[in-house]
Design a protein around this nucleic acid. Sequence first.
DNA 1: AACAAATGTTCCCCATCGGTAACAAAACAG
DNA 2: CTGTTTTGTTACCGATGGGGAACATTTGTT
Lengths: 73, 73
Amino acid sequence: MDHRIPDASDLGHLIRDARKAQGLTQDELAGMTGTGRRFISELENGKETSQLGKVLLVLGALGIALYALSKWK
Amino acid sequence: MDHRIPDASDLGHLIRDARKAQGLTQDELAGMTGTGRRFISELENGKETSQLGKVLLVLGALGIALYALSKWK
DNA sequence: AACAAATGTTCCCCATCGGTAACAAAACAG
DNA sequence: CTGTTTTGTTACCGATGGGGAACATTTGTT
């Protein structure tokens, strides 16, 4: 299924749902992505200042692909 | 058109292309999003540590919608 | 080639990210 | 209800994001 991501909290919810659907704890996801449990917790709660690269790492680890829809290219 | 965004540099290229297609300078885009020209420059060049919220602001200003494609929900 | 505009890059510097660890509060299982 | 697991939150702290401004470099125009 695909979800529009207008802001950080939408992404957070999506990540939380995907993680739970795969039976992972925040700790495990943090370990898989070389981040910390705190980062995952804050990300899932919609923190605006999470760093892009780490966010993409987490998405990748969860098998979530990101798409940009633009009229320009 | 839609583009897969596997990492920060892909997003950077996409943003640059969209900005140019709309005839905007980095300075103008920075102004529209309340960021700085330096932020835009680094973002377009694929900086991994750009902050999520500001990135989403820039995408919004350019009329680019983000979608997450997951098998889990 | 010459001038202008746009972008890249550096410096100064304050604010804050995020790792680890510890504790509190929730959510669950039996 | 009780013990356990998971998650939220805080403190500590080294590292760095990013704003503004100045300068260097590239790109574009004529």
